[in-house]
Design a protein around this nucleic acid. Structure first.
Lengths: 189, 189
DNA sequence: CGAATTTCTTAAGGTACCTTAATTTTTTAT
DNA sequence: ATAAAAAATTAAGGTACCTTAAGAAATTCG
């Protein structure tokens, strides 16, 4: 659980005791490639920290089209945040892209952790803050950039993710068809 | 400052003393219509709570095109969050749409408040959490809905904002031209 | 290893939305 | 109240990106 503890230590320092509590509230899961961690309409019970591997969340619209909401590789957190926090049926699916290990915090343990160790309010404040500003930047890019520019921005911003996912998945994150991404790539790198 | 205190009381309870501290850290501003509260490239020093009126944040892309990032009417918070938190030059402009009153928390006072009254970590955790899930939903709509569907979703979601802003501003929030929004409105409601 | 499946590519025709520009309507300011 | 400015409408022509379809390349899995 070293990587997880280092992730947390970037923002708050835990005592021995608090570290023990945290590890007792978290469970680890080893998942084969293409395993569904969450399905739409289910109760989204877990917030997951990716220790190794790669996952993606996506949703399926009324026409059956898939859109990737986010990728999560090592050291990222992933869940259907709105539904996790508000106990609503999930809007998203979450699946492993490759064999992965995750540490999961159930909603009950999340509440317990925040009550018992208020320091974690700061940790999650920063986590949410980063997630918010990242999404806002994505909205800004969606509003102002062409598909080609968004693709290049993605390559620059997430070079590690690019190595772990297919072009089809990148296209569905960018909001374009894989066919169109393919023609973009043909013209210039 | 009643409305602001009620906004905070929805998530945390403050003692008399904490309330006094908060009010001492916040300054109020009365702003005429079309006043710029923040300009791109400036230091974004304030987080603003809208007591009355209406504001919008927008950015100008390389082609000179304006995109509205958010509207903030009474009881909303607004800033260029990424630049406020990370002390980067602002990417956005923020201006009043109508005569408005805001309460502002400077970055220094924000830090002081969080250190002095850790309870505020919870308040801002929830604020960031809501902002994050709202932006994520917007990304999902941008990826899956047509311009017309996004327009109707906006009308449903923000009926009060609709009354306070122009169609041109709504178009720039939706990522379409005002001309195209106009033709959408002609066909059906 | 070989068969099945999935991904990637290519291309032709189509559509959602854009650009430009001119007119009308509404709002602002003196 | 009136002039000036900004917003909204309409329309014609254009483009970024989509749909469909079929073949080639890569990956998965027995």
């Amino acid at each position: 659980m070293d990587r997880l503890l280092t992730n947390i230590a970037k923002h708050i320092s835990l005592t021995e005791e608090e570290t023990v509590l945290l590890t007792s509230l978290v469970t680890s899961k080893n998942l084969a490639k293409k395993t569904l961690l969450l399905e739409a309409n289910q109760d989204c019970r877990y917030l997951s920290y990716v220790d190794s591997g790669a996952l993606r969340s996506y949703f399926i619209d009324k026409d059956g089209k898939e859109s990737t909401i986010m990728f999560a590789i090592a050291d990222w957190w992933i869940t259907d945040m709105y539904c996790y926090l508000n106990k609503k049926p999930a809007m998203m699916h979450i699946e492993t892209i490759e064999q992965s290990t995750v540490f999961q915090l159930s909603r009950d343990n999340f509440d317990r952790l925040l009550e018992t160790v208020p320091k974690f309010e700061k940790f999650f404040r920063i986590l949410m803050q980063n997630a918010y500003t990242r999404e806002q930047l994505r909205v800004m890019e969606n509003l102002s950039l062409t598909a080609e520019e968004r693709y290049h921005s993605f390559l620059m911003k997430y070079p590690q993710i690019v190595k772990q996912v297919t072009q089809k998945q990148i296209a569905s994150y960018l909001g374009i068809t894989p066919e169109f991404l393919s023609t973009l790539r043909k013209v210039k790198g």
